[in-house]
Design a protein around this nucleic acid. Structure first.
Length: 489
RNA sequence: GCCGCCCUAGCUCAGUUGGUUAGAGCGCCAGAUUGUGGCUCUGGAGGUCUCCCGUUCGAUCCGGGAGGGCGGUACCA
């Protein structure tokens, strides 16, 4: 007989296990944000994890394999289905499918896992939870403003302190107008300009100047081809991106100087002015939302206003290195998504953020929403023949709303105490022969013991003292446990 | 995708100029303590030295390839 081939216990790369601590933190974020979104009149919606691949906008080549980027499989009727890569594409499908019967404009929020089949990196996974809110069927700039205000309020409700995040607003139409004025007509060249501008925060104006022109050689020796603008056009783009200082109306005035005159630029400016006015009415000041001309976001997707939520938190990692979290979410107006299905253009705008990313940002900022996950009261399984009594005790505690469990392993008492300690249990209940005979229970306050343990040096003394331990009448058990719980609340 | 660096126990890492039984700290399990968490001491489990091919009498070590990780860059709905 040869050794059986055993599978290696490991998770696929880009997929992570998340334990109680993470889950509690994320659940709190979602609860807080959902409450805000519902207060704004957005209804929850849940759609399935799979969509037909064509509904996601993924074109399937004749090869029996869909485009990269998504996880796809073929149904038994040969149709390609794929796991959703965001929550916007399923919304577009849902809206198109139910358009006739939906109240319009349709306002909904959604959260859940999304999947991307691409190379994972630090803080970048192939499965992660997104939270998304959209208004479908309103072309008014006020719809964008409301999404922005709601995003700002949502992030704050999730636990981000005021001033630690700012929403940056821009409008695609401004850049389009600018490029038209600069004589950029070629689509490939337009994309190259957008990509260059998107890198402003990382490379600075000099790096972007190179990318707008001939190209840039980075430290690793790789060369990135530039957009091929002439010097005058490049400077004009840079001047545009530099206009984002001061208040919103100041910025708008400056932008008018740079892009004003072109039809598309003027339209973009008018939208931003309307958004600014609505934001002011909504009570969102420049501390929470600014106009930032260098924001680009997804390339071919957005048609008008775009926004990005940037974290301003300054934090350091375990090694003391400063970390920049940067963007935690973004969104914008996409007026062509539903039209893919129905043929008729439907204006829509939305915002989405990564829930785990926000949670880890909050943690790094010392805003841990779930610092420790407490374990249950542990009923020590002292005498194997009295298990029924122990379950009765656990039931009594549970009935009083106290998380409790009977130790179900086979180990001795020492290991059971260690188990309770490791679970961060507030207390252990010990019922042995003595207690059974006397109709009492022994309760050990583990929190108190944790506090005292650091000062004890001698094990015999530690055991002798039995800190926080009391033997009381069985009828007083729940009250005594309550007292221990309340002391730490 | 492209460029560079890295891969030895669950974790962090030593080490072997290519030679027979590969180590430490932490963690884990058990005992000292037959009804008590921490400390201390003692003992134990745990490794195809990432995988495959080649060179060699002999490879964890040298060469090639693959996989995985890290950093940069590109892309990102």
């Amino acid at each position: 007989m040869s050794e059986p081939v055993r599978p290696e216990a490991r998770s696929p790369r880009g997929f992570v296990d998340r334990r109680a601590r993470d889950l509690v933190a994320e659940r709190r974020i979602l609860t807080a944000v959902s409450a805000v979104y519902e207060r704004y009149g957005f209804e929850p919606l849940e759609t399935g994890a799979f969509e037909y691949a064509d509904a996601l906008g993924k074109f399937l080549p004749d090869a029996d394999r869909p485009n990269e980027g998504v996880f796809a499989l073929q149904d038994d009727d040969e149709q390609w289905m794929a796991l959703r890569y965001d929550l916007t594409a399923p919304l577009a499908r849902f809206a198109a499918q139910n358009w006739e019967t939906l109240p319009k404009p349709f306002r909904r929020y959604a959260f859940g896992p999304v999947w991307r089949n691409e190379k994972p990196g630090p803080g970048r996974f192939r499965e992660f939870v997104q939270c998304d809110a959209d208004t479908v069927g309103s072309a008014r700039p006020e719809a964008d403003a409301e999404i922005i205000a709601m995003a700002a309020e949502g992030l704050q409700a999730a636990g981000l302190p005021a001033g630690s995040a700012v929403l940056k607003i821009n409008n695609r139409k401004l850049l389009n107008g600018l490029m038209a004025a600069a004589g950029v007509a070629d689509d490939a060249q337009k994309l190259a300009v957008l990509r260059a501008v998107d890198k402003l925060d990382r490379l600075g104006p000099d790096g972007v100047r190179l990318l707008l022109g001939e190209g840039r050689l980075d430290e690793s020796g790789a060369f990135t081809k530039g957009a091929g603008l002439n010097a005058a056009a490049a400077e004009r783009v840079l001047a545009f991106t530099a206009a984002g200082v001061g208040g919103r109306s100041e910025t708008l005035t400056k932008l008018a100087d740079v892009v004003g005159g072109s039809a598309e630029g003027d339209a973009g400016l008018a939208e931003l002015e309307a958004i600014d006015r609505a934001l002011t009415g909504l009570g969102v000041g420049v501390d929470r939302a600014v106009i930032e001309p260098s924001v680009v976001r997804g390339l071919e997707y957005y048609t008008g206003p775009v926004f990005e939520a940037e974290l301003l938190l300054q934090t350091t990692d375990e090694k003391g290195q400063p970390i920049r979290f940067g963007s935690v979410g973004g969104g914008g107006r996409y007026d062509d998504l539903v039209a893919r299905f129905t043929g008729q253009p439907v204006p829509a705008t939305g915002f989405s953020f990564g829930v785990s990313r926000l949670a880890s940002a909050l943690r790094a900022a010392g805003r841990d929403l779930a610092a420790e996950v407490r374990g249950p009261v542990v009923v020590i399984a002292f005498d194997q023949s009295r298990m029924a009594d122990y379950f009765q005790v656990a039931g009594e505690l549970r009935g009083a709303g106290v998380p409790a469990e009977v130790y179900l392993g086979a180990s001795g008492m020492k290991a059971q105490m260690k188990y309770a300690d490791r679970r961060l249990s507030p207390a252990a209940v010990i019922i042995g022969e003595d207690e059974l005979a006397a109709g009492t229970v022994t309760i050990k306050d583990l929190d108190l013991g944790r506090e005292l343990s650091s000062k004890v040096t001698d094990n015999a003394a530690w055991r002798e003292q039995r800190p926080g331990q009391q033997t009381i009448a069985r009828t007083e058990m729940v009250a005594a446990i309550r007292k221990i719980l309340d002391a730490r609340a």
